[in-house]
């Protein structure tokens, strides 16, 4: 079972690398694809990438560890990132933070036991006129209220596709 999972991971990485071209500059786009599809970048994935680009796996790891949207440890299926920077702090970040913690039953930096949600802080997202702002995976939410926080978490709990769709319309 595990072997075949690794096998498809490997095949995917090779396919993506071919699409992107094979020099070092594809490293970040390649890692981003792995991250998006597998929600983390495993040591095995790093090894495959290192082999493909002919660099040391440690070098791949050093890049993964540098960027806050890339991670080697598995995270929840929904990574919720709440902006903690000044304009959002002034527009009510703390209320949203409390509500999210209450909804999810975890603190910032933690993942729910069912691996569905990870809650994190992030820095200014460029939505300062529409604070408090947060992201769920790639999707941005603005002018957050505690009620909205509850609704979004509920929508995530239901189905991902419906949730993604609804946001396209809002955006």
């Amino acid at each position: 079972m595990l072997v075949s999972e690794n096998e498809t991971l490997k095949n995917n990485i090779i396919k993506w690398a071919e699409e992107l071209g094979k020099d070092r500059t594809i490293l970040l786009p390649l890692l981003q694809r792995v991250q998006k599809k597998y929600s983390s970048i495993s040591p095995y994935a790093m090894q495959i990438i290192a082999d493909l680009l002919d660099i040391h796996p440690v070098e791949v790891y050093s890049v993964v560890s540098f960027y806050s949207f890339l991670n080697d440890e598995p995270k929840g299926r929904f990574v919720i990132r709440l902006c903690r920077t000044i304009s959002c702090e002034m527009s009510g970040r703390d209320r949203i933070a409390r509500q999210l913690q209450n909804e999810l039953g975890i603190a910032f930096g933690e993942t729910t036991p069912d691996s569905r949600f990870t809650l994190e802080w992030t820095n200014c997202m460029g939505m300062c006129d529409l604070g408090p702002a947060m992201m769920v995976n790639d999707v941005v939410f603005t002018e957050m209220t505690p009620e909205k926080a509850h609704e979004i978490v509920e929508r995530c709990r239901q189905t991902f596709s419906a949730f993604a769709l609804q946001n396209k319309q809002e955006g």
């Binding site: 594809i26 786009p29 890692l31 806050s68 890339l70």
Partner: peptide, 26 residues
Amino acid sequence: IHMGSGAYICGEETALIESIEGNRGE
């Protein structure tokens, strides 16, 4: 288009170039 991955320092022009080259944004 080249996507960043959540690092403020990559806005500094030489860090940005490092990042495009596939390195840490230093």
